[in-house]
């Protein structure tokens, strides 16, 4: 690999990782709160992208960047208030199944409203230029903007949770809901707000991720499992774990695409250019597998390995 490829992969990996963290942070907060993984989280990301696309058609990208996440957050808060809170009495299984149902219905609703084909969600003209050049190749300003946005939100969230009174109440509500309630705080309201804010974070990721990843009805289904890999690998409920795991998965996926190497190339180094025909079709399948093809498999291998050898995740405190 050349230095050029490494630099760009590092940049793109960080970018993708931070985008994933925008989603994973909300998911982790919601998990700490309800003890249940929210299967609809990637769906909020998707409606964020669609809302961003639709709103920016009328008022431009930057107002959409604010309006769309607010709308997504409202949708999330309503779903918590009138859906999740009611199934809470059926236990974690009921809550989990409810979020699966919500994810299913949201995907259908998106197809119902916007159709099945991808949207023409373009990078806004104001950010459609080259930010800087390294190795003679330009790096798009929009990607830089995404990176700055993600880091800024990460910083804001960290400050909010660790340095403010609101953060204190939220953290206390997660661990000691009865006591916080005794002290006169409206814990159900806190939960609804956390759910809403978590959904809004996913919405922001959707608005800024929509133009780069394709805005289409399958985007939730394709991103959802990766998110679960991240929160489980990082350790359920651990924000710092989610951060590390997001970057890890981001790097794995971008570097795997960048590495142009297959099993055949490896054998080519030692002079074997053809698979031994006697070993059959299966070996010739493996023979042609390249690293970029293995890329999508690695996160799941990582997940299974972590679950077997370190069930609490990399940074988790409890199993």
């Amino acid at each position: 690999m050349s230095a050029e490829v490494i630099t760009f992969s590092l940049l793109n990996g960080t970018l993708y990782g931070m985008l994933l963290f925008l989603l994973a942070s909300g998911l982790t907060l919601i998990f700490s709160m309800m003890g249940v993984l929210n299967f609809a989280h990637a769906s909020f990301f998707m409606i964020g992208a669609y809302f961003g696309f639709e709103i920016s058609k009328y008022v431009g990208f930057f107002p959409a960047l604010i309006l769309a996440p607010i709308l997504v957050g409202l949708v999330g808060a309503l779903i918590e208030r009138y859906g999740l809170r009611r199934v809470h009495k059926f236990g974690h299984l009921g809550e989990l199944l409810f979020t699966i149902g919500v994810a299913f219905v949201i995907e259908e609703a998106v197809q119902m409203i916007w159709g099945r084909s991808p949207m023409d969600y373009q990078i806004p003209a104001a950010l459609d230029f080259t930010a800087f050049e390294i190795f003679g190749t330009g790096y798009p300003a929009f990607r830089l903007f995404m990176l700055i946005m993600s880091v800024a939100i990460f910083a804001a969230l960290a400050l909010l949770l660790t340095r403010t009174r609101v953060g204190l109440v939220v953290k206390a509500s997660l661990t000691h809901p009865e006591m916080v309630s005794m002290l006169g705080h409206d814990v159900p309201l806190v939960f609804m707000s956390v759910f809403g804010v978590g959904s809004a974070l996913a919405g922001i990721a959707g608005v800024i991720g929509g133009p780069i990843l394709i805005t289409q009805p399958s985007m939730a289904m394709s991103l959802g499992p990766i998110l679960f890999v991240i929160v489980v690998v990082g350790g359920l409920g651990s924000l710092s774990g989610a951060f590390v795991a997001s970057l890890l998965v981001g790097f794995i996926q971008t570097f795997a695409v960048a590495i142009d190497l297959s099993v055949a190339d490896v054998f080519g180094l030692v002079g074997v250019t053809q698979p031994p025909a006697a070993l059959g079709a299966l070996v010739s399948d493996i023979w042609n597998v390249s690293v970029s093809q293995i890329g999508p498999v690695i996160p799941y291998l990582l997940l299974v390995a972590v679950l077997i050898f370190r069930p609490m995740g990399l940074f988790g405190k409890r199993a």
Partner: peptide, 10 residues
């Protein structure tokens, strides 16, 4: 939850 996650991962 861990069971659900592992089966999903597998």
């Amino acid at each position: 939850m861990p069971f659900a996650m592992i089966t999903l991962g597998l």
